[in-house]
Nucleic acid binder design. Sequence first.
DNA 1: GGCAGTAACGTAAGCACTTACGTAACGGCC
DNA 2: GGCCGTTACGTAAGTGCTTACGTTACTGCC
Lengths: 336, 336
Amino acid sequence: MFLHAQGELALGSRLKAVSESLYAAANAAYREAGHDIDAHWFPVLRYLQVRGPASVTEIAAAIGQTHPAVSQLAAKLRAQGWITRRTDRSDARRGVLELSAEAERKLDRLGPVWCAIRRAAAAAAVRDGGTLLDALGAFEADIASGRLAADIRAHHARLKDATIEIAPYRRDWAVHFERLNAEWLQRWFTLEEVDRAVLGDPQAHVIDPGGAILFATLDGEVIGTCALLKEAPGVYELSKMAVESGFRGFGAGRKLLEAAIAEFQRRRGRTLFLESSKRLGPALQLYESGGFVHHPAPRPGSHYQRADVYMVYEPEKAKRLRAKAAPRKQLRVVGR
Amino acid sequence: MFLHAQGELALGSRLKAVSESLYAAANAAYREAGHDIDAHWFPVLRYLQVRGPASVTEIAAAIGQTHPAVSQLAAKLRAQGWITRRTDRSDARRGVLELSAEAERKLDRLGPVWCAIRRAAAAAAVRDGGTLLDALGAFEADIASGRLAADIRAHHARLKDATIEIAPYRRDWAVHFERLNAEWLQRWFTLEEVDRAVLGDPQAHVIDPGGAILFATLDGEVIGTCALLKEAPGVYELSKMAVESGFRGFGAGRKLLEAAIAEFQRRRGRTLFLESSKRLGPALQLYESGGFVHHPAPRPGSHYQRADVYMVYEPEKAKRLRAKAAPRKQLRVVGR
DNA sequence: GGCAGTAACGTAAGCACTTACGTAACGGCC
DNA sequence: GGCCGTTACGTAAGTGCTTACGTTACTGCC
């Protein structure tokens, strides 16, 4: 090929072409999976998803584009109902862009597609060779031959048909424990000292004192986690429940909760409680449907600043709920 | 950075950004060196330079863009006098785009800038790591820190102040001998069987039979070559003279010619001749000014189909020319 | 409080492409 | 020679960004 012979001089041209091919491949994957989303929206939407509401300039700086680019895209997304805009209370110049509830729901379903794209692209990009040029050449070849698109399809099919499994603590998954929890903590609150300690060394702060950590996986991908902290003999705290954005709504949270309760019972615990926040609506719903009841008073001596919800597990309530919803249909990984 | 945390999912976005940074860096280098050329034109102009006149669709296919892209750029370049367009004699649909004489001259001067960009980009792109993502990260860092731009400037300064040197044959430079000659042969003629043999194994076809190969270098970069073939005892043929497009007009051809004649004299040769073609105007001028005279009849038993010019070296003429142009001023690598 | 400098961000226009489409010429086949 | 599918390529319109610019709001300093 002529451009290849030009070496680094044609790098700009080739990078642009690869970039466009990648957008095309991602869009094809979205369409095939039935999502009406454009790959160009990813940086903005993803930023809003993991960081929460943000201003135009904040997003622009984070994704490395100019503010008009974000502004124009925001206008389009607003017209299509993906995001809403209100002016910042404390600074009337600034706008606050926020995902609509529907957009949030849509994005929470994109995990499998994203994961498929990520895996396929990673496989195509891993070729050794050292220089960017070699890596690029290999990548171009994979795109041109259709291997990338086929890989995305294959990975997506696997992920779609895979079921969420619960796995016990593994030392090499400590990073996932940290990553998954840091995401929602940073979005909704700030990392408190306790958090930093526990996330930084879960072995020392959870496992060794007699607690447990569980992971939810989908086709080998760690997509969720939760911890059972031992407060006192027979007293456990359910904590650090997190499911990766993009993989929510597939039942991982419920499976983690059930597995945690089972673990609590296996250890013959007497008391299981949790602390949470009113802001985390869906999580509270999950806890309620899992057998937890709201405790009227805040927990004395809570570890967390953010805690304004205190719930306790009631086996009797759990039994009643199970009986009522007895023939609960199996949750599939990808809806319907 | 946010996009980095998104891994392969943000690859498209990042590649595009890097691509644009590269264009910007190249444009800055062009401006600094005083060339009024846009980096986006490179694929088209370079194609026309190394391959000669071509149609819109041919170029589009070669550079991996759509034909309207080339068509539109061609219109712009035509308006600015870079290229001319005539309709193909044998197919009235097809147009033949060709560099104007002035454009050809301008492009012939771009070698040092191109080389500087190539070297700087190669240095930034070589980081180990294996995956495209790592290589890209390193490249982005170099762009952001301004290291790439500084490197380009530094390399260009070196190349600008370097002088062209003549070096004897080296086995590891055989590839350059092939590359440099293949370029003009493919552009103006086609590779004949003799060419393929000589270029493929210069050691066996030139050096071993008692000939010589010379290289012109600029700051370590091989930018030109020529060969002295031993026809018979005392009879030598000057052949395979080639200077890389982009480095023409800097005097490399003259230096090669002079060095070849010196080598011929060092070997106490009696006859030095060459075969060429009327189509290669500038080369013929060079030969004439170097002391060669046109021989009226074609050489009996020529090796080449393309040869319609037969010149013989006359020491007397060379002496006269030297006397006339005695205080010839030193040629600088980059004009004024 | 007034005022200059700056930040947020919308709008306009431009750019380097793309897709979509139309037109004219070619080439093979009857 | 007539016709039909294909090819070359120009034009129009769209896209995802950019730069340039203007308006409004904030901030710090006197």
